[in-house]
C-alpha cells in the first residue's frame, strides 16, 4: 500500500491573548490509498484543528508551527495560499458537521456545485448540469436533476450532508477529511450516511479521515483508529485491536465508561476529572491527573512507541503487542 497522506510531527498553535494554545502537538500518522481511519477524542482534544491543518485552513491567530504534511508526495506546510487553493477540492476535500455553514443560503445547489466544478474544470453548461446531477444521484438524492434548483434550506439535514458529500467528491480527490459529519443527524440517517460513505470510498478509491467523538460510530466505518487527547495522538491501531485490547489508559477509560460496559442500572466506571485546558497543560503526560496508573515516571511527556502496527504514548501501557501486532 502506498501512503497518499503522510503527517509527521505536525504542530499547530494559536497565539491568543490568554496564551499559547497547543492544539495539535507532534501528530504523526499516514493514510494509505483508499483507507479509512477514524480520529476520536473528546471535544477540544484537537481533532478539528488537525483536520483544518491538513487542508492548510488555519487562520490567525493560529499557525502551523512545525512538522510536515505530504499529500501525494508534495509538502503542504509552507505552500503558498494560491497553490493550496488549487489543491483543495481537487486532491483533498473536507466535510463538516454542519453543512449549512459551508453552503451558501442564497445560491441554489446547482449554482454552488457549478462554482465548485468551475474552480478546477472548464465545462459547458450542459456538461456541468450532467456532472452535478450524476454527483447527487450517487449520494442517493432522489430526483437529482430537479433538486439542483433547490436552495440549501429546502433540504433536510441528512440530504444537506449528502449534498456536501457530493460536492466533496466532485473532483474525485484522493483524500477526504470528514469532521463529525453525522454528529448532528439522527441515528437512522447516520446509519444511512455511514453505509453510503463506506461504499463511495471503495468505489472512488478515496481515502478518508473520519473525525468523531463517538468511538462506536468510528469503529463502524474505520479500519484504523487514532485516539487523541489534549492535542496528542495517544494510541493507534486497527479498530478491532484498539477496542479489544486498548493499550493506553485513556482509551481503556473511554471504553469502560460507556454504558454497555456495565450491567444496566449499575454505576458506570467513570474517568475522574476532565480534560485539562490546552492553555495550561500539566507537565509530562496530559492524562496523568486522571490516570489510575500515573506515577513519578509520568512527569515527562511519554515518547511515541511503535510496535507491531500499533503505537502509543504511555510509560505504563496496559498490554503490549508482539511483533505480529497481536496483543496478549
Amino acid at each position: 500500500m502506498t501512503a497518499v497522506l503522510e503527517v509527521r510531527d505536525l504542530r499547530t498553535e494559536f497565539f491568543t491573548a490568554a496564551g499559547t494554545v497547543r492544539a495539535v502537538n507532534d501528530v504523526s500518522f499516514s493514510l494509505d490509498e483508499g483507507e479509512i481511519i477514524g480520529l476520536v477524542g473528546e471535544s477540544g482534544s484537537g481533532k478539528s484543528v488537525t483536520g483544518f491543518s491538513l487542508l492548510g485552513l488555519i487562520d490567525a491567530p493560529g499557525r502551523i508551527t512545525g512538522g510536515s504534511v505530504r499529500l501525494n508526495g508534495s509538502e503542504l506546510v509552507g505552500m503558498s495560499r494560491g497553490e493550496l487553493r488549487r489543491r483543495r477540492g481537487r486532491e483533498i476535500a473536507m466535510i463538516f458537521q454542519d453543512p449549512i455553514a459551508t453552503l451558501n443560503p442564497l445560491l441554489t445547489i446547482g449554482q454552488q456545485m457549478g462554482l465548485a466544478l468551475s474552480a478546477h474544470e472548464r465545462l459547458s453548461p450542459k456538461a456541468t448540469e450532467d456532472r452535478c446531477t450524476e454527483a447527487l444521484e450517487r449520494v442517493g438524492i432522489p430526483s437529482a436533476r430537479a433538486r439542483l434548483k433547490s436552495y440549501p434550506h429546502e433540504f433536510s439535514g441528512g440530504m444537506r450532508q449528502r449534498v456536501a458529500i457530493a460536492i466533496a467528491l466532485l473532483h474525485r480527490p484522493k483524500v477526504i477529511v470528514a469532521d463529525e459529519p453525522t454528529t448532528a443527524l439522527d441515528v437512522s440517517i447516520q446509519a444511512q450516511i455511514v453505509t453510503e460513505m463506506k461504499m463511495l470510498a471503495r468505489e472512488f478509491g478515496v481515502a478518508m479521515i473520519w473525525i468523531s467523538h463517538d468511538l462506536a460510530v468510528v469503529s463502524g466505518i474505520a479500519s484504523r483508529i487514532l485516539v487523541m487527547y489534549a492535542g496528542r495522538i495517544v494510541e493507534t491501531g486497527t479498530a478491532a485491536e484498539v477496542l479489544r485490547n486498548p493499550i493506553h489508559p485513556y482509551t481503556r477509560g473511554l471504553l469502560d465508561s460507556m454504558p454497555h460496559a456495565t450491567r444496566p442500572g449499575e454505576m458506570l466506571r467513570q474517568i475522574p476529572g476532565s480534560m485539562p485546558s490546552m492553555l495550561s497543560l500539566p507537565p509530562g503526560c496530559a492524562f496523568a491527573p486522571r490516570c489510575p496508573r500515573a506515577d513519578a515516571a509520568c512527569t515527562a511527556v511519554p515518547e511515541l512507541v511503535q510496535q507491531g502496527g500499533r503505537s502509543w504514548r504511555c510509560v505504563h501501557p496496559l498490554t503490549q503487542p508482539d511483533h505480529e501486532g497481536a496483543t496478549a
Binding site: S188, D214, A240, M258
Partner: peptide
C-alpha cells in the same frame, strides 16, 4: 432503530455492522 445504532459489544469483540432504515421521517 436498534439496527441503526453502531455498537461495540460488551467484550469489545464484535463490531456490528449497522443496517440503515430506508427513507426519512
Amino acid at each position: 432503530l436498534l439496527d441503526s445504532v453502531p455498537r461495540i459489544a460488551a467484550e469489545g469483540e464484535v463490531l456490528m455492522e449497522v443496517k440503515p432504515i430506508s427513507g426519512e421521517i
